[in-house]
Amino acid sequence: MQFYATERVALFVDGANLYAAAKALGFDIDYKRLLTVFGSQARLVRALYYTALADEQEYSSIRPLIDWLDYNGYTMVTKPTKEFTDAAGRRRIKGNMDIELAVDAMELAEYLDHLVIFSGDGDFRSLVEALQHRGRRVSVVSTLMTSPPMVADELRRQADQFIDLADLQDEIGRDPNERYNREPRRRAPELNPQDDDSFESDDDLIET
């Protein structure tokens, strides 16, 4: 990773996308270690975590994780999912957080030198370009080490720096033998990006 010690950095974590990438690589993320790693590289100003929640999952197994993150250095950005029936009569749940992440990134860019986006979603390419036009460096964290890759090629090419999540496993991975009481193991989120291998359009939908 290439950071400068004096840079003001913020992390923007697409929760569902990061979860899917880590799961595909076969490890769980230790979110406290993640903050420590990036905080040691530069001046970490803020870490924002984005996820959508179904109303009935208000007190599900994902709730303890959200509460833990909220009390341990992360700014939580959540919203309710929306349920609809598609043309084939299948029940679908939509919970895209792209707009929230993009708006926050543009608003905070004035106070930052370097933005780190944890997502492989190709829809963020335009956001990265807009931030670069404002003189900001942008790194993208996802992975190429899956089949197919979890990061859209256009997003990886646009970023100033691409960081493969697989290369961070030893630094931010949770020890599988450790009983990690501070961060409960989370269930696959209700907006599961793995339903779209491209990660470029419908990563906010799941089929039920």
Rank of each mutant, 00 (worst) to 15 (best):
D175T: 04
P184R: 12
D153M: 10
D170Y: 07
P189M: 13
F118D: 01
R134N: 11
V128S: 09
G135C: 12
P189R: 00
P193L: 06
Q132N: 10
A188W: 10
N192S: 13
G120C: 03
M145A: 15
Q158M: 15
R186M: 15
F162Y: 09
R179M: 07
R137L: 15
F199T: 01
E178W: 13
D123C: 03
L165P: 01
R187Y: 09
R136W: 07
D195G: 14
M145E: 15
V141L: 09
S119W: 01
R137P: 02
R136C: 13
M150E: 03
L131A: 12
A130Q: 08
S198Y: 06
R174W: 05
L144N: 13
R136Y: 09
S142H: 02
I163C: 03
A159D: 02
N181G: 06
M150S: 11
F199D: 00
Q158L: 06
Q194R: 14
D195A: 12
P189T: 02
N192L: 14
Q194I: 11
P193C: 08
D167E: 15
N192C: 12
V116R: 00
R186P: 11
Q161I: 07
L168D: 01
D196L: 04
F124S: 03
S142A: 15
S142T: 02
Q158F: 06
V140K: 07
R182M: 11
D196T: 03
D170V: 10
A130N: 05
